[in-house]
Structures are given as C-alpha cells and as structure tokens.
Nucleic acid binder design. Structure first.
Ligand SMILES: [Zn+2]
Ligand SMILES: [Zn+2]
Ligand SMILES: [Zn+2]
Ligand SMILES: [Zn+2]
Lengths: 171, 171
DNA sequence: AGACGAAATGTAATAACATGACAAGAGAGA
DNA sequence: TCTCTCTTGTCATGTTATTACATTTCGTCT
C-alpha cells in the first residue's frame, strides 16, 4: 500500500482499466450518493462524504489507515474508528466495497447495480476494476443450492495484471 | 475467531458439511502430504507437519495465532514467524489454503486436484467447505479474457449458513 | 421551546494479524 | 570436511481492526 496514490486518470487504465473523464466520474458518483442517501433517509455526514471523496480520487483500493491520514490532513478526527465507521456506512449502503485480498476499500463504480460484483486487482499498479455482471456469482449460487448452503455474501476477486500493465511490460 | 475450536467431526457437518470418518480423513491427508513432499523433494519438517496436523483437527479456518498457541503447547517455537513460515510452505505447496475473508487458514481437503477452489464459510459454526469443481472460476476467467486482464490467482468465497446450522436454527 | 431517545462522533486503549532483520542450526553435495 | 542453501529461533516492529465509554448532534414528541 506504499505505492504512489496520486490520480492516474491521465495515464489511462483505472475504472475497469479504461480511460475516462475522471472529474465527471467523481462528480457523478458524489451526486448519486447524495441522491441515494436523501432517498433512503440516510445521513450523509461530512466525514462519510469526505471518505467517499477520498476513495473516488483514484480507482485504487485504499487501506483504512491511508484514508485516516487524508482525513487528518483535512481536519477530521484521526482515530481508527473515525475511518472504520465511515467505511462501514459506505459499504453497508453499497457506496463502497471492501477488497478482502488487500484489506482495503474502494468506491463503488456503479451504485445503480445489483450488488456484490467481482473485482480484478492488478498486482503491479494496484488498480481495481469492478465487474458488474459476474456470471461467476451465479455459478457459485448454483453450487451452493446443490449443497444446501445458504449464501449471504459472495467474495469474488481475481488477482493478476491489468491490460495497461501488460502493455508496459511487453515494451 | 473466539468461537469454540474443538473437534466437531462427531456432530456431523464439516468437510463439505458432510459427515465422515475424521480420523481416516486426517491420516489420509497426512499420508498424502508425506508422499507429495517425498515426490517433489520438499522438506516436510516437524513444524510444518505439526501445523498441518493442527489444521486437520477440524475443518475450520484457524488464525495464525491460534495455531501458534497450539504449537507452543506442543513445545515448538512460539514467535509469529514460526507459524507464518510453516503456513507459507503449506499454502505454496497446495497442502493448505488461506481464507481471505477470515484472515485464517484451512487444510486442503483434496491434495489431488487442480487448485484454487471455491470456499463456503459458515458464519455460525465457522466450518469451511472446499468446492473443487468451481464453475465460478471458469466464469471468472471468461470475463477476464474479454477484458484483457491476466488472472494469476482467483479468490472465490461464499459466506453464509451451512446445512447443519440451517437445521439447528429451524428447530 | 424543552425534553427525550437514537444515531453519530471524539478519544483512549487494546486486540488481532503480519513482516523485517539477523543470528544460529541442520542438510545436501563437492 | 568445507561450503552453500534452506530452515529455524528470536526480537522487534508494522499494519489492520475493535472495544469501551464519554460527548455531541439530530429528529421527534409534547
Ligand atoms: Zn459496486
Ligand atoms: Zn496495472
Ligand atoms: Zn485444496
Ligand atoms: Zn454451520
């Protein structure tokens, strides 16, 4: 998690490893979150909003303590529960996801989908892409039904090398 | 991870949540590990063997420090690296798996298969079943190919309630 | 407006998980 | 036997996450 953490939209790959207008992407996500919380009667407080903003800065997973550092810089509290509570809220309401492989968190790339997506994690540049359709999840439910196991949550993560990094190493 | 950690083969569910002869299961696994290490020129040292035995005690995931406690009881070293190194060995050679969701480890239920299975984790009794065929993994590889992402490892875990615990709560 | 209860935050302390670094020992091959 | 490599012992430290409790904020009811 000591990798550079600056914005990288300019160099190309994040958000599904595809180039995109990042400021738009970020504004849209925040607006969607605002709307969503309004609608559901959730309290989108300053810390919670700030944490989502931090996560939206880049499409990478950030550890709770990295988030905490940024919160401190912006004058928020700096004890672990501050970050963990905000993250719990965001995760519980589908605005962020936890990447178990990394013990880290990422902003949701599309708050308008049926949740529990799959993630693809680049071990070189740390970018994380959210795969929404996820036929893998369906396959998993199939298996579970056969076993009599009642699934409450699925964790599907692939670790490897993203298209952008493949190109770099080939050159 | 503070749940009771005693053997439970008698009460039924683990190992794919199915009843089975646990002492046979354990002996077979150790024998297979012996053979495997012999064959591949790996050094199946006392600590490594002991850690595998500990994991085989029950089909539950155990944290590294829980393992460490048991190692201490049996007169082995008790510093974290002792356990982590043995676990690294077992995982690297397919004799154990790490459950990312729990930050814990489990003995492999079948050393004779092509690895990276899916896991089903019971949140009530902490039992973990290893799903070998895993069509979910294939589905994931499909998606990755389409994206140009090169998968090196997959993590597929389902959290929920096992058949045995479903029965208990219904009664 | 004032009182109240629920939700959110501030803060200190601690638990749980994991690695780095280096010295000492055991094993395999020249 | 020498030497190289892998393994183990041990101390120290780093990273991730939770418990506990006091305080504040906010909506709701009177
Ligand atoms: Zn999402
Ligand atoms: Zn990459
Ligand atoms: Zn296995
Ligand atoms: Zn169960």
């Amino acid at each position: 998690m000591t990798r550079e953490t600056a914005k990288v939209s300019a160099e190309g790959h994040p958000l599904g490893f595809a180039q995109h207008d990042h400021s738009t992407c970020m504004n849209d996500a925040l607006a969607a979150a605002d709307a969503r919380c309004e609608e559901d009667g959730l309290r989108f407080t300053p810390v919670r909003r700030k944490v989502l903003e931090i996560l939206l800065q880049d499409h990478r997973a950030l550890g709770a303590y990295a988030i905490l550092d940024k919160l401190r810089e912006d004058g928020f509290g700096s004890q672990p529960p501050i970050a963990y509570r905000a993250l719990d809220f965001l995760v519980a309401n589908g605005l962020a996801h936890k990447i178990e492989r990394l013990n880290a968190f990422i902003a949701c790339a599309d708050t308008n989908h049926a949740h529990t997506p799959a993630f693809m994690i680049c071990r070189l540049c740390n970018a994380v892409a959210e795969e929404l359709s996820s036929s893998a999840r369906n396959a998993l439910h199939e298996v579970a039904r056969a076993t009599g196991f009642k699934i409450e949550r699925t964790i599907i993560e692939a670790e490897g090398i993203c298209p952008s990094c493949i190109n770099k190493t080939e050159s």
